[in-house]
Write a protein that binds this DNA or RNA. Sequence first.
DNA 1: CAAAACCTTGCACAGTCTGCAATGTTTACG
DNA 2: CGTAAACATTGCAGACTGTGCAAGGTTTTG
Lengths: 195, 195
Amino acid sequence: MTVSLRERRRQQTARDIQLATLELAVEQGLENVTTEEIAAAAGISTRTFFNYYVNKESAAIGAPPAFGEADKTALREGRGALRDDLKRFLDKHIKILADDDNIVRMVGTVLRSNEKARGILDGFLMMERETLTECLAGRVADVQTAAALASMCTDSIGRAIFLWETGDAATLSAALDIVWAGTLHAAGLMVVPSD
Amino acid sequence: MTVSLRERRRQQTARDIQLATLELAVEQGLENVTTEEIAAAAGISTRTFFNYYVNKESAAIGAPPAFGEADKTALREGRGALRDDLKRFLDKHIKILADDDNIVRMVGTVLRSNEKARGILDGFLMMERETLTECLAGRVADVQTAAALASMCTDSIGRAIFLWETGDAATLSAALDIVWAGTLHAAGLMVVPSD
DNA sequence: CAAAACCTTGCACAGTCTGCAATGTTTACG
DNA sequence: CGTAAACATTGCAGACTGTGCAAGGTTTTG
């Protein structure tokens, strides 16, 4: 087995804490929940809570799925049209998010009102964007171009989640399709010197 | 006069606090600075510090310049090529930032290591992006397209600041030119189905 | 099975942030 | 001008956050 008993328990406790945090946060707003309440709900001591997460905002966010290694390789070495490879890449990722869409929704709720949580997620996204930029750097030569593309990608995912959360799209994948169409259209407007 | 003595003093104190915060933060890192130190450096009591800012991260960020009303109107009613109007809009804004480039630099330092500060700024940028989306909504009809364009704009400013901070561009305006070229190039790649 | 590694917990303590009440300063206006 | 209302500053008490440390328990390793 790849994971020891200890490791599995640790994962489980981390997830228990996250779920306890999110449920309390959705009910009362994260700012009105104390670490003591969270610890009690998760069946651990306050001190142990802080052994898992440095603060309640981190507990709410947990460990978001990173871009898959295989998907990144596919993107780096892809030979299709760039925009199609990118869309495929994002589709893969949004499907992973969809596996835990209940958590995505609760995290979204927290993010809407909690600045600290936004900052924490932002830090994570910044790193993801960075790795994405590196993936693209080989295909587009210019770093600024790669960075712009990477931003378009993470932004599209963010807007797709938002669209789905507000009920304007039935699924995350459908939301991404809508958002992506807008992104492509916007790109077209930036290129063609017309209004 | 448009501002009373009281109002002017308030602005001055707010700025004094921000500068005290940033200077201490650049020296020691914001996490290693206590509100007590900041208050002492700004010549006020700790309690008064919290009358001005809800926390030290907000004090460090202060009140970033918003997009100008006139510039937004110009963008909304512009009749030139969209991408040129956008570039003009961003040029205007980056010039305003350049007026306080010492503060921009210090804030950048803080943002690099402080998650909470990033979240606070992110909330501000989110609102700015929202107003920008509304400005563009009249010109492009589709909301998703407008949102994508707005994201490209705020992202470009962010990357320009980063480029300038790392010394890869002499001025903020020059940095924006470089970043913008990358953004346009990226847009081109998204449109033309080639690699 | 014993030692190493890791986990949980309590406790003490430094720091953050709010509400409240006292006191002083500025503004508005009769 | 002078007074009442509005606002600013401060201290203090108190709830909450987050860390270091040490004690005691469980899992892993060989």
